[in-house]
């Protein structure tokens, strides 16, 4: 209860309530997340259950189109394998969100540790680590992600890759995007490390790791929080892009990106709904995260990114 009060009494919450854009995007995001993680409860079908899928149901149009083969069981039509679009999308969004959040957790872990060490220790180590981050960043995260997953697929083979696609994608995207965190954290550590409280901690003889992780780290969390929202959106985008070019989730466990891909193969025959609905879901998901991130950045305004 006290925790709840602390949140509702905060400036952040006050500001949030006065920004219709923030409320709107947060509501949409909450709705999407609840719908996707509650998919087993809400979805009319289970796309992973082979026994309920009938190939004869493949490529049925949405019911409101009035086409002769539209089926009342499938509100948004079906995909090329006869799975209901609505259910498959909900399950697919869960995969996308899981990968997005997982990748951000991984990249923030790597990035924060590297950024802290580089910023606090300084010297040669810092120059090396930051140069590495710069070089990797100059290749752009998409490029790095595409290359690593291409290599993984080459090493493990297509079959194994699709069996472990979820974990591998988290690994790939997490590794591709750590420099963002490392740079942000390092910049804040540089600003923090000469302040009195750090001096004081050093004077009383605390070990270095304790100063870094218990004293400096909490004070660098604001910018980390801000880029995290945008990074989740980026990670979801990367995942969709990788799945679209066939380096991501397999059709048997579709994410939004692989659904769009499977629809693209049928677009010439006029089956627009297979690509369009997951596409809309993806854009709304990313847009709501980005808008929320924009609001958070404007609120906290730590002059981070000039994108």
């Amino acid at each position: 209860m006290r925790f709840f009060k602390k949140i509702t009494g905060s400036n952040l919450f006050y500001n949030f309530l006065r920004d219709p854009m923030a409320i709107g995007s947060a509501t949409v995001l909450l709705f999407l997340i609840v719908a996707s993680f509650g998919a087993p409860l809400f979805a009319p079908h289970n796309p992973y259950d082979q026994t309920t899928i009938d190939i004869m149901d493949a490529e049925l149009p949405p019911i409101w189109t009035g086409a002769a083969d539209a089926d009342s069981r499938f509100l948004l039509g079906t995909d090329p394998q006869g799975r209901g679009m609505l259910s498959t999308m909900l399950y697919g969004m869960r995969v996308s969100v899981l990968i997005g959040v997982g990748a951000v957790v991984l990249q923030s872990l790597i990035g924060i540790i590297i950024g802290l060490i580089a910023g606090y220790k300084g010297g040669r180590l810092e120059a090396l680590l930051m140069r590495l981050a710069d070089v990797q960043l100059s290749f752009s995260t998409y490029m790095v992600a595409i290359f690593i997953s291409a290599v993984f697929q080459g090493i493990f083979g297509m079959g194994v890759y699709s069996d472990y696609a979820l974990g591998l994608l988290i690994l790939v995207i997490g590794f591709a995007e750590w420099p963002q965190y490392a740079r942000t954290v390092r910049a804040s550590v540089m600003a923090e490390k000469n302040k009195e409280y750090v001096e004081a901690a050093r004077v009383i003889g605390l070990p270095q790791w304790r100063i870094m992780f218990r004293h400096i780290l909490p004070n660098t969390m604001t910018p980390v929080l801000v880029i995290s929202t945008v990074q989740v959106a980026n990670a979801i985008m990367s995942e969709a892009a990788l799945s679209f070019i066939g380096l991501g989730m397999p059709p048997s466990q579709p994410s939004l990106g692989s659904l769009i891909k499977s629809g693209f193969d049928y677009i010439a025959s006029g089956s627009w709904w297979i690509s369009l609905f997951p596409g809309i879901a993806l854009v709304v998901l990313i847009l709501s995260i980005n808008l929320l991130g924009d609001w958070l950045r404007d609120y906290l305004n730590p002059k981070l990114y000039k994108d």
């Binding site: 892009a241 679209f244 677009i267 006029g270 690509s275 369009l276």
Partner: peptide
């Protein structure tokens, strides 16, 4: 531009193909 950044390039491409080609 924020909507533009949020729409993946392959989705724009598919949409354009559907509208202008199909």
């Amino acid at each position: 531009s924020i909507i533009g950044v949020s729409i993946p390039v392959f989705l724009t491409a598919i949409l354009l193909i559907y509208v202008f080609a199909v």
